[in-house]
Design a binder for these strands. Structure first.
Length: 497
RNA sequence: GUCCCCGUCGUCUAGCCCGGCCUAGGACACCGCCCUUUCACGGCGAUAACACGGGUUCAAAUCCCGUCGGGGACGCCA
């Protein structure tokens, strides 16, 4: 998008979700791209709730959307609700009708049936539907008479036909676009209950709110030709358009709430322990590239680097699976962002997950544990399984055989544990002292570090894979360590019978 | 069905507009090695792609045409 155009000097963009379900990743990405564009150009970000579908809108959905956006931590400058602007929309429709650019369609509405539920709908028709027979040509007199008689009607745009009219615009991502007007159907502006349709409400508001750039999903690319007509009918200049490649599932189909469920919900990512900055980073890389081979980026960096020129045209696959709902790259990025966080901050992020697992996660304790697990977790939620033994009073039962080092036997494990108890009881409980004491003990037993440390690690952690030993011992404290080693000896004894 | 869009490693992508520097670069994942008290981190390495067919040209991933494949729109949903 050339920065020389006046509108690019201070662009106004909008994110216009319809509150018919939870905020899903595709919508979140659209929001993020708009935000990035606005903030990069020092423009204005407008949030508009496109809630003209009274039937399907829910309060819960509105809350869910705000919750998701707030979690992302990205802001907006102005906020509107379409449902509060209905009078404006109706007046706009009347104006278009008055100009002869629309007509009344008295064809009864498709009785309840969702055209899409049958999969058929448009597909079953031979060719594309353009208009209902007899309506477009109806005389103004008859139209007025039937309307006055109270017969319900929808208002449709009278798409110019037979004039060889070509609709065209320059897309910020897809380049020059054009289509014959003859191929555009007479879409509805007003429903028979008087409510504006999405097309009308959206275009009117975009014009009225002086939106300069419409950045939205590519599923609206063909709708844009209709929108061009509406802006014309409104006698308003059309904004710039930029369509984003779609986010698709591994099977190639557009991500949808209905088909893909919670794996596409923003809250699913939040609850699994994604950091919002990592989530944003991941979503940006789906269909956009800074072109400098960098992928791990802070939000501020992305904002600075962002440009519509970097937006790709091919759809992007979000690589989730049945057994693993998150794209590996998203997980990797999250791990990177996790490690980039100052420990205290990471600790604060981890704390709620620990508490939710029922642990007594005192801030000081979490702060002490965090550095030990931060390179061992990729999602915040994994802190629970990575650090459980720091918080439980009683270790969950483990196989005593784990206490026995690789090339050793139970007797060796017993000797190690006994020796360890001596050392731990007599050594100052700090990293270096423990390190020195335990290594000397190993030497005294004629053992290498491995066989010496493993029994101790399993005894205090209850498993083989754990954070580095000395740090772990320190955080656990002398008392707990001694107690757990004692219990380990008992387990070992039970094994020998 | 009609129209619109897209097609580089398994996935995200760079390169394409302005043909040669591309024996196609990076990242994730996977595999191997190293580091190491376990796990992890880190380091190193390997495998892996220009959908296909025609042109144009001295030269094509890059330009043109076609084919095939995928997606989207076609609703009184948004």
């Amino acid at each position: 998008m050339p920065d020389s155009t006046p509108s690019a000097l201070s662009p106004r963009v909008r994110f216009a979700p319809s509150p018919t379900g939870f905020l899903h990743v595709g919508s979140a990405r659209t929001f993020i791209f708009n935000w990035l564009f606005a903030r990069h150009h020092h423009g204005t970000m407008v949030l508009r709730l496109d809630d003209t579908d009274v039937e399907r809108n829910t309060e819960a959905s509105v809350r869910s959307i705000f919750e998701g956006l707030r979690w992302l931590g990205l802001d907006w400058d102005e906020e509107y609700k379409q449902s509060e602007r209905l009078d404006l929309h109706r007046k706009a429709a009347e104006a278009i009708f008055a100009r002869g650019l629309a007509y009344r369609d008295f064809t009864p509405a498709h009785a309840g049936e969702d055209t899409q539920s049958g999969t058929q709908g448009a597909a079953s028709r031979e060719g594309a539907w353009l208009c209902n027979p007899g309506m477009r040509e109806m005389s103004r007199e008859e139209s007025d008479r039937r309307a006055a008689a109270g017969e319900p009607f929808a208002l449709r745009y009278r798409v110019p036909r037979g004039q060889g009219r070509i609709l065209s615009f320059q897309d910020g991502v897809y380049g020059p676009q054009s289509k014959m007007a003859d191929e555009v159907e007479d879409f509805a502006l007003l429903r028979s209950d008087g409510m504006p349709t999405y097309h009308l409400a959206s275009c009117f508001d975009d014009a009225d709110l002086r939106i300069t750039h419409i950045i939205r999903g590519q599923d609206h690319l063909t709708n844009t030709f209709k929108h061009l007509l509406i802006f014309e009918g409104l006698d308003a200049a059309a904004p710039q358009f930029a369509h984003l490649p779609l986010l698709v599932a591994p099977d190639g189909a557009k991500l949808s709430k209905r088909k893909h469920g919670p794996v596409v919900s923003v809250t699913t990512y939040r609850d699994a322990g994604f950091l919002p900055q990592a989530f944003i980073n991941f979503l940006c890389l789906l269909g956009w590239s800074p072109k400098n081979d960098r992928e791990f980026l802070a939000v501020d960096e992305i904002r600075e680097l962002f440009s519509l020129d970097g937006v790709n045209r091919a759809n992007a696959v979000v690589n989730f699976k049945e057994d693993d709902p998150f794209d590996p790259k998203a997980v990797w990025l999250n791990a990177e962002h996790l490690r980039a966080l100052p420990v205290e901050e990471l600790a604060r992020c981890i704390e709620p997950f620990l508490k939710q697992a029922g642990f007594q996660a005192a801030p000081e304790k979490v702060a002490a544990v965090t550095p030990l697990i931060r390179e061992r977790i990729k999602l915040l939620s994994e802190a629970v399984s990575a650090a459980d033994f720091f918080f439980v009073a009683e270790l969950t039962p483990y196989d005593p055989a784990e206490l026995i080092p690789q090339k050793g036997d139970a007797a060796l494990a017993r000797r190690v544990l006994e020796k360890a108890q001596e050392v731990l009881a007599a050594t100052p409980f700090d990293h270096d002292s423990l390190d020195k004491g335990l290594r000397e003990a190993a030497a005294a037993l004629g053992l290498k570090a491995g066989p010496m440390f493993q029994p101790i690690r399993v005894a205090v952690c209850g498993r083989k894979n754990a954070p580095p030993l000395f740090e772990t011992l320190v955080v656990l404290g002398r008392e707990t360590c001694l107690e757990r080693i004692g219990q380990a000896e008992a387990r070992l004894a039970s094994l020998q019978v």
